[in-house]
């Protein structure tokens, strides 16, 4: 009977093998599409894969790239930390206080719909050029979906779990940490994944418009100097970084999202 519990473990290796094949096929297709696009739009807009990779091989060995990469990473790290912690805390509070949540939800949804680039002049005037403006711009992009997902998760938690917590005489604090948080974790992780990519977007936009540091700046710099391999190369770096981070978050989701993150539950 314990076979029930073993089933997922037994099917995983086969799935992983076919998964890596899928990945390889996808990679080849992406490279072909890139090359095709390059031939269609021409050298002036998009560098070929070979030329880009050759450029990157040299550029990544020099000192310039890593300084900019570190600047982006730092801005992104701070923005994500502030957005995630702030978003989860605000979301938990709004989810628990039903009235406040009902008031806040349409406001947040409205804010979410605003193209935040329009706010950038204001952000710049408040924070000035540089790190803090980039972080602030990342946060305002990422925090709202994290709040909304966390709030939604708390609102829809099965009431019987909270009743069970009371029946087991848990304190409010124990209930929050040991029942509420794990129950809402899968949805919070989904919110974090969306918040993550939006935060990254915010930081990069910040770098592109008003910064002398970071990958976003390198892209704009490449455009200004008409260094097409530089622009294409930086786009590639950003894409790879985003894919890797998304993969990590998906893995976290599967690992800590509990059984509800596995297909059996659905």
């Amino acid at each position: 009977m314990s076979a029930t519990a073993d089933v997922p473990a037994r099917t995983t290796p086969a799935r992983r093998r076919s998964g890596s094949w899928d990945g390889l096929i996808l990679l080849v297709l992406a490279l072909l599409a890139w090359q095709g696009m390059h031939l269609y739009v021409g050298e002036a807009a998009l560098a070929s894969p070979v030329k880009t990779l050759t450029f990157l091989a040299g550029f990544l060995r020099g000192p310039v790239f890593w300084g900019h990469f570190a600047a982006t990473l730092a801005a992104f790290g701070w923005a994500l930390l502030i957005g995630a912690v702030g978003g989860i805390v605000i979301g938990l509070v709004l989810g628990e206080r039903r009235f406040a949540g009902d008031v806040a939800e349409p406001i947040l949804a409205g804010l979410y719909a605003i193209p935040k680039v329009t706010l950038y002049p204001m952000i710049l005037l408040i924070f000035g050029l540089g790190m803090s403006a980039k972080v602030a711009f990342g946060v305002i992009h990422g925090i709202i979906p994290i709040i909304l997902f966390t709030m939604g998760a708390v609102k829809t938690i099965s009431p019987v779990l909270l009743r069970a917590a009371r029946a087991m005489r848990l304190t409010r604090r124990q209930t929050a940490l040991e029942v509420l948080v794990p129950a809402v974790l899968p949805e919070i992780l989904t919110g974090l994944r969306i918040g993550f990519s939006l935060t990254f977007l915010g930081v990069l936009i910040g770098e592109m418009f008003a910064s002398q540091r970071g990958l976003g700046f390198l892209i704009v710099n490449g455009i200004n100097l008409h260094n097409v391999p530089m622009t294409t190369g930086m786009i590639l770096v950003i894409v790879l970084f985003a894919l890797a981070a998304n993969g990590l978050l998906l893995w976290l989701h599967r690992r800590f999202g509990g059984p509800s993150a596995t297909p059996e539950h659905a």
């Binding site: 099965s158 019987v160 009743r163 087991m168 124990q174 794990p182 129950a183 059984p259």
Partner: peptide, 30 residues
């Protein structure tokens, strides 16, 4: 709820993020 009282509900109140053993052990956690 006083100590010495145990309640079982109609709805499934098991914690989906814990294994069966951890669910059962949760009753004595505190």
């Amino acid at each position: 709820v006083p100590e010495g009282v145990g309640i079982v509900f109609q709805e499934d109140a098991s914690f989906p993020w814990l294994t069966v053993r951890d669910n059962v052990a949760f009753g004595l956690k505190h």
